[in-house]
């Protein structure tokens, strides 16, 4: 089990995941990938990216949208962008 920091960004990100994938009990870990979450397919990924952008007031680059393979990477990018 990968440990995941429970800072404000992560908790907010977790709430976005819960809303997008309609799972009130979803828990984020850095190792979580699309394969682990029902609904996180190509279409679900687009909805997720949009919802994260809206929630954090950030804009992903095209490369970021394609390359975010797991929650750990996603969390780092969101944290970097939302404090910049």
């Amino acid at each position: 089990m990968t440990s995941t920091p429970s800072d404000a960004t992560t908790l907010k990100l977790q709430q976005v995941f819960r809303d997008v994938f309609a799972d009130p009990d979803l828990t984020l870990t850095d190792a979580l990938t699309a394969a682990d979450v029902p609904g996180w397919d190509s279409l679900g990924h687009i909805g997720l990216m949009f919802s994260i952008e809206a929630a954090f007031g950030i804009t992903f680059t095209d490369a970021e949208m394609s390359s975010l393979e797991n929650v750990g990477e996603l969390r780092q990018v969101v944290a970097r962008k939302s404090t910049a």
């Binding site: 976005v16 809303d19 997008v20 309609a22 909805g47 949009f50 919802s51």
Partner: peptide, 11 residues
Amino acid sequence: DLPAWLAAAGE
């Protein structure tokens, strides 16, 4: 909010 609407659609 789109995610809320999508979740509602699922229900």
